[in-house]
């Protein structure tokens, strides 16, 4: 089920974001919580905000966006990061 379900996120530009040298500080208005995001979390949120996607679909788009090779490892990393974002309430599944 997890393989096929689609992940959603709010539009990234809706969040107040402050960029520092090492991380991005994101204020999530819906929850009132602040998140410190390291790469590639902001890119994942940007892509999901544009269009909901499966893990597979998001991995493809993310690798293209960052100009890196798409392999098993990339797929696993995206899966883990999505779990974290889901636990933080920043993405959700339909």
């Amino acid at each position: 089920m997890a393989q096929n379900s689609r992940y959603h996120a709010e539009s990234y530009v809706a969040h107040p974001v402050v960029t520092t040298a090492d991380m991005r500080l994101l204020f999530h208005r819906a929850s009132g919580e602040t998140h410190l995001l390291a790469d590639p979390l902001p890119d994942m949120l940007i892509l999901l905000g544009e269009q909901p996607d499966t893990i597979q679909g998001l991995t493809t788009r993310l690798c293209a966006r960052l100009g890196v090779a798409q392999d098993e490892e990339a797929h696993a990393v995206v899966g883990h990061r999505l779990d974290e974002l889901e636990a933080a309430g920043l993405v959700w599944r339909d």
């Binding site: 402050v18 040298a21 991380m23 500080l25 204020f27 602040t34 410190l36």
Partner: peptide
């Protein structure tokens, strides 16, 4: 220390950061 670390430490040492909402975020950032 880095800015993100400073931000994180200061929020931990604040009793009302979360309650101020977006204004708290702007001020702390």
């Amino acid at each position: 220390m880095g800015q993100a670390e400073l931000f994180a430490l200061l929020t931990q040492g604040s009793t009302n950061y979360a309650a101020l909402g977006e204004r708290g975020f702007e001020t702390m950032a």
